[in-house]
């Protein structure tokens, strides 16, 4: 059981100190990722999904504080590592794919130079080569091999290009090639296809799935698009106001959502494949500086009870699914404390 687990996040709490006050971005996030699994982290703007991804990589901005919690990656407690030890994991064992290709590729270097940097800094095999010319050859071969793997058109030409000369789809392929080139154990992909057109999105997701399967890489896919998760992930965690309110296999959560927020989200989604009456969730997401007492969803919840206004729901396990909701807590209901 423990052996098959690559990442364990337990009760993670993150706060941002801002001029408005303390923003409670994460309020006790817990989830696990198994080896070779694609775990989907879904949620709306401000739900804390990106902050979770950044916290795992210890890339949070300076005004962020990890108040509490544990992040265990491959048997190591990431939060207790020194910065130089973390540097050895980041970019090598854990790599990232981001949404906006403009911000992660350096505009003044060619693709070859940027890719070469990654390999020279992180790849042990290449670092062990002594001869300079041999290094360059190994680097070149490796880049071309990775670009071929991500089905980049004309790789020999592409490596001489600058980022602005690449289309959005090509940049995202480049990012995947870079992310997979060091054979990481975990990839954190934050909205990797949100900036792409649907036909290109379909290509990139297909590619990511096949590379992930080939190398047995674990992936955390962060997205607001429930369709993307349904087609890519095996399990899903639904975030709301800095908590994961429901976790389960994609099959079970989509066919029978338990948390009222998940239910509302599914009903609010217009569908391209069928005519459905859409029902919106009233109200809007809570202010993270001034969270409501009790369950954070209760002001928008149609099934809110007295207790929801006062006490934060416990984390319940219902037939292997994790839910944080008072509806399932109690002697007569199905839930038991996880």
């Amino acid at each position: 059981m423990v052996l098959s687990r690559i990442l364990e996040v337990a009760d993670l709490k993150v706060e941002f100190r801002t001029y408005r006050g303390v923003v409670k971005a994460l309020n006790g996030v817990s989830f696990n990722v198994d080896k070779g699994e694609v775990f989907g982290l879904a949620g709306e703007t401000g739900s804390g999904k990106s902050v979770t991804g950044l916290a795992i990589q210890r890339l949070l901005p300076g005004n962020a504080v990890i108040v509490e919690g544990r992040i265990v990656f491959d048997g190591r407690d990431l939060l207790s590592l020194k910065e130089d030890e973390m540097n050895k994991i980041r970019g090598k064992e854990i790599t990232a794919v981001f949404q906006d290709p403009h911000t992660y590729l350096n505009p003044v270097f060619t693709m070859r130079e940027q890719f070469r940097d990654i390999l020279l800094t992180n790849d042990r095999e290449i670092a062990s080569i002594k001869d300079k010319r041999e290094i360059e050859k190994a680097v070149h071969d490796r880049i071309i091999q990775m670009l071929t793997e991500v089905q980049m058109p004309a790789p020999e030409r592409v490596i001489k290009m600058y980022p602005h000369e690449l289309s959005g789809g090509m940049k995202q392929r480049m990012m995947l090639a870079m992310a997979f080139s060091l054979r990481p154990k975990l990839i954190i992909a934050d909205e990797p296809t949100t900036a792409l057109d649907v036909t290109i999105q379909a290509q990139v997701l297909e590619l990511m799935k096949s590379l992930q399967k080939k190398y047995g890489t674990s992936v955390i896919l962060i997205t607001h698009d429930l369709g993307v998760i349904a087609e890519t992930c095996s399990r899903i965690g639904v975030m709301y106001a800095g908590r994961i309110v429901e976790t389960g296999t994609v099959d079970s959560v989509y066919s029978e959502p338990l948390h009222p927020y998940t239910q509302g989200l599914m009903r609010a989604l217009p569908r391209a494949d069928k005519d459905l009456k859409v029902e919106s969730i009233g109200g809007s997401v809570p202010d993270l500086v001034d969270l409501p007492t009790g369950c954070p969803f209760h002001p928008r919840c149609s099934r809110a009870m007295e207790i929801c206004r006062k006490i934060n729901p416990r984390t319940l396990n219902i037939d292997g699914r994790i839910v944080e909701c008072h509806l399932y807590d109690g002697e007569t209901s199905r839930g038991r404390v996880a």
Binding site: T199, Y254, D273
Partner: peptide
């Protein structure tokens, strides 16, 4: 190409 929020709805994708 539109991702459908339903697992196993996987009608053969025309990529």
């Amino acid at each position: 190409s539109v991702p459908i929020p339903e697992p196993r709805s996987n009608v053969e994708k025309q990529l």
